[in-house]
Design a protein around this nucleic acid. Sequence first.
DNA 1: ATCTATTTGTACGTATGTATT
DNA 2: AAATACATACGTACAAATAGA
Lengths: 258, 258
Amino acid sequence: MSHATSHSISDNNAENRASRPLQVAEAIKGYVVSNALKPGDKLPNEAELITLFGMAKGTIREAMRILEAQGLVKTRTGPGGGCFVHEVSETRTRALLSNYFYFRHLTISDIYQLRKQLEPELAADLAGKLDAAAIGELEAITEEYETPPQSKEDDRRHHEASLRFHARLAAHAENHLLGFIIGFMAEVLSEVTTTRRLFEPPNHELWAKGREFQLNLLQALETGDAQRAREIMAQHMSFAEKLMHQQELRVERKLGDL
Amino acid sequence: MSHATSHSISDNNAENRASRPLQVAEAIKGYVVSNALKPGDKLPNEAELITLFGMAKGTIREAMRILEAQGLVKTRTGPGGGCFVHEVSETRTRALLSNYFYFRHLTISDIYQLRKQLEPELAADLAGKLDAAAIGELEAITEEYETPPQSKEDDRRHHEASLRFHARLAAHAENHLLGFIIGFMAEVLSEVTTTRRLFEPPNHELWAKGREFQLNLLQALETGDAQRAREIMAQHMSFAEKLMHQQELRVERKLGDL
DNA sequence: ATCTATTTGTACGTATGTATT
DNA sequence: AAATACATACGTACAAATAGA
């Protein structure tokens, strides 16, 4: 009862189109920034936030869900639990970006236009910069298509491994924007590979070419030959683009899973 | 109070790490996809969703906030109101992407590495494809720096207008991924321009070069000379990169405003 | 292993705001 | 101007999870 309902805290006046939970969410972001909170730091708990912002429990919780959806916080129950600042994961960001392209369709050539430009950059950047573990991981991936594809299923697996190769490369990028974009594209292509029956029938020549490229690239990366790494990647992308040009199809984005 | 609290609908069992609101949010996404709902279509209202998913009002509302934070739905009050599917806006997606880079810092060179590769592509794509209105808008922007900068403030305004030029160009990209990335980078650079005192003192030579480039580019775009448009843009980016190389500074991303 | 304290999560019931008819 | 149909916000009671004694 009672319902003191003092409502208006500060602005019952102007262009107040934003919902209360959203306002609170933005306010909490401000709190994080001004207190220079780092990932892992704890936010005030529900009860404190309620008094701090003078909002009802539900409102605070909705605000938290907004921040959680953005990947900025994680909440845990129990003692020592609460709401914690969290570094937004690449996975989540990709999911969010996927939503954007759910109605704005991408084509295979859209993606290859970018890959052609960006993958060679990445290859050059990474030459001589990868440690043994990273090289080892990449080599392990190439071994997944050591033998020619015997079936459509083999072909699909090879193609997926190849994309994983690019995604892992992207994960080592020093330029995080470059790495993110390349990783995103690899994910998109990987989905296409699994949902459509692309890349069939098994193509022996394509396999041979692809494998040759991966091995040469690895060598260039290991020896630190940036120019050669760039050229190999550029050639590979040109080659792949040519193949793709027959596959001028629209990529149906799915809604990103959080 | 009863509190029948029948809780578990389907899965009180397995690895249920996802919170209920998040599950509901994903379920509603599934509803949108399987019913092939388009932007503007109405979702069931709160009451219906409550019975549909067997959840309490608060849970449904939190789920809605999640979807709203992702920009997938918009809610309106009043009769005829409710929850509507919404095309995720570019602005919101950029905000979400900004969050990702809040802890993963970008440098000016990171951004220019990409601009150098991508902006020429865009210029070439757009040659001969812009209608009179689009060309007019771009011309109007160039007129904002018709006169040499007289002050730091002028210089800042010019630089902002120049970035707006690129952003507007990006908006016309047929390749939505390309357009999005270029628009995002323009936004990032624009923030840097306003928050830091970059690009000072006023540089007369830079102004002259920049203006010359914009006018030549517009001409190439109008006449449909793709190759020339690409070259002009490439030169411009090389030039800008050289300037930027002295400014090897980290870009502090802000948390995206929704 | 059990209890206990702490903190988030869920469920209602009700009151208020808001926009359409 | 009033009624209506919604979302929005509030407050309390209770449930579940988890860390520590």
